[in-house]
Amino acid sequence: MGGILSLPVLGVAVIYGITGIPNFAIGVIGVFGGFVTWYFLSYSMGLAIAIGVGVCFIIGWIVQRVLLTPISEMGGDATLFFIITIAVGFVFEGMLRAIFPRPNISLELPRIGTISFAGYSVEGFKIIALLFAIGTLIIIRLMEEHTEVGKSWQATSQNLKLAKLIGIKTTQVFSIASGIGCALACIGAIFWGSLYNLQLSSGWDLGFLGFIVAVVGGIGNIWGGLISALIMGMVMSFSGYLLGGEWQSVILYCIVILVLIIAPKGILGSERSL
């Protein structure tokens, strides 16, 4: 569970870490990409995933460029972004309902069975999701250290005014970050849709879960987000096993609320403050 959760969490962390904007529409956009992937799956698996992820990148890019960056430049605060991105989520959930005739889909990707470790067996797909998340995280960190693009991301997230002064196209950096975040959420939705199923409203669950897990890890802190996703995934699995499915999310949200009360900046601390 933690492996799948880690992808939208990474998406939230990348967007928030660079743009400073809490984007609640990310889950709905990711699930929209999941439905697009499902639609093209009968042609070719690779092509379908590429189209789904590509569509999400473009949506993330456009939403940031057309709506969120201009509002940010006008001085919008976190509450305003919270409301605006919820409204963006409404639009994409509405598009899902209008475009796709089925309310419930399952993405039939090739199975790789279960992997046994220390007496426990885990679905191989969950391990792949986790490895993918760790791989993405390492690539992001390496890019930040060794490439011009990555350095411009770091500069923008640390000091926006200075980044603008030294000629970094911050608007473009924000748009790319938003695109990458939404693409990661889409990959998370594809894994989710393959293991369970995707419903029209799944995006909200994925988005809210992604956001709260990111907050628990220390919003904007991608290592914190990954650790938090693993812990929360385990909490969900164990509580579901011990108390049943209905109590799974109740326990999760109770723990998150407690963490927020005790350590509002998350377990590893936030790189930005909300």
């Binding site: 976190a78 999310s249 109740v250 909300l274």
Partner: peptide, 26 residues
């Protein structure tokens, strides 16, 4: 949440709003 500020307090109460219907279901 007396020690926390602004958006964290909003988030805590918002999470409570997500939690409550789930508690009702449970």
């Amino acid at each position: 949440t007396i020690r926390a500020k602004g958006f964290y307090v909003s988030m805590t109460s918002f999470l409570l709003a997500i939690l409550f219907p789930r508690l009702i279901n449970a």
